[in-house]
């Protein structure tokens, strides 16, 4: 579904991603871990099409298409969803109104008819249950005055509404208490199918107890320096990132 080859990207002249390779197949869950500043959010942003980042080398193929050629909204309509680490606030625009615009633009692209108000509300009610989100929250301005947990929950709710093929969750666990974490993970797990895939970005193993990954990758200084199974996450939890840094550094000196 997703094939990233030798991806290099920089921002304001600084190279952040320095040759990423990653293959994701339908039905898989990949976890990307790594210390702060290693480039995890950058990778997510580049995949979603944020313009500030300049891709200097490499390619990304998504469902047979060259993802990097597509405008961000087209990527979204093709099925790329990013749950933001820091969701933005849009004053005066209710989540409901925002999502209705989004859902209908996505549906139009996918050749489906637009949902009228009733159908849309029905769909919303159904998806709200997934992440136990309150209707009241959705009539408020998008993310404005939401708590950290509410924002994250709202991201997953949007994911449920948009029915993506590839979901990238950027630190969705940060700012969540244990109950919220369980609810959000539960939602993500219910959305999982053999047709879609998930990339979970986190630096805590905690989340991976709930969303169990098929593969775990360690991103460090803009490269995936280690890949493994869920056990790798446990190892990282136990030993921290230092041993990886040492491994990388010693490899570099060889």
């Amino acid at each position: 579904m997703l094939s990233i080859k030798n991806l290099h990207a920089s921002i304001e002249g600084t190279e952040i991603l320095r040759g990423i390779n990653l293959e994701v197949k339908a039905g898989e869950v990949h976890a990307i871990m790594g210390p702060n500043g290693s480039g995890k959010s950058t990778l997510a942003s580049v995949l979603a099409g944020r313009e500030e980042y300049e891709v200097t080398d490499g390619e990304v193929i998504f469902k047979g298409k060259n993802l990097l050629d597509l405008a961000p909204e087209v990527r979204a309509r093709e099925g790329v969803f990013l749950a933001f680490q820091y969701p933005v606030e849009i004053p005066g625009v209710s989540s409901t109104n925002f999502l209705r615009t989004a859902v209908n633009q996505v549906r139009e692209y996918r050749g489906l008819e637009a949902l009228d108000a009733v159908k849309f509300l029905t769909l919303m009610k159904e998806k709200m249950k997934l992440v136990e989100i309150d209707q009241k929250l959705l009539s408020r301005s998008l993310n404005e005055g939401f708590s950290g947990g509410e924002k994250k929950r709202n991201e997953i709710f949007q994911m449920a509404m948009l029915d993506p093929t590839l979901s990238i969750l950027d630190e969705t666990d940060s700012g969540l208490d244990i109950d919220a974490l369980r609810i959000v993970s539960n939602g993500v797990n219910q959305l999982k199918s053999d047709k879609n895939a998930t990339i979970v970005v986190t630096h805590y193993q905690r989340l991976l107890d709930y969303i169990v990954p098929d593969y775990v990758h360690v991103l460090f200084k803009g490269r995936i320096v280690k890949s493994g199974t869920k056990d790798l996450a446990l190892e990282l939890e136990e030993k921290g990132y230092d041993w990886i840094k040492e491994e990388v550094d010693s490899a570099a000196t060889v």
Partner: peptide, 28 residues
């Protein structure tokens, strides 16, 4: 904000419609 527009884009909303949403929210 570029980040507001990008957020909308990421949900499948074209830039023009994103601007309309944001502006209407602002003027609500």
């Amino acid at each position: 904000g570029e980040d507001q527009i990008f957020y909308c884009n990421q949900r499948g909303i074209a830039t023009e419609d994103a601007v309309a949403l944001i502006v209407n929210g602002y003027a609500k």
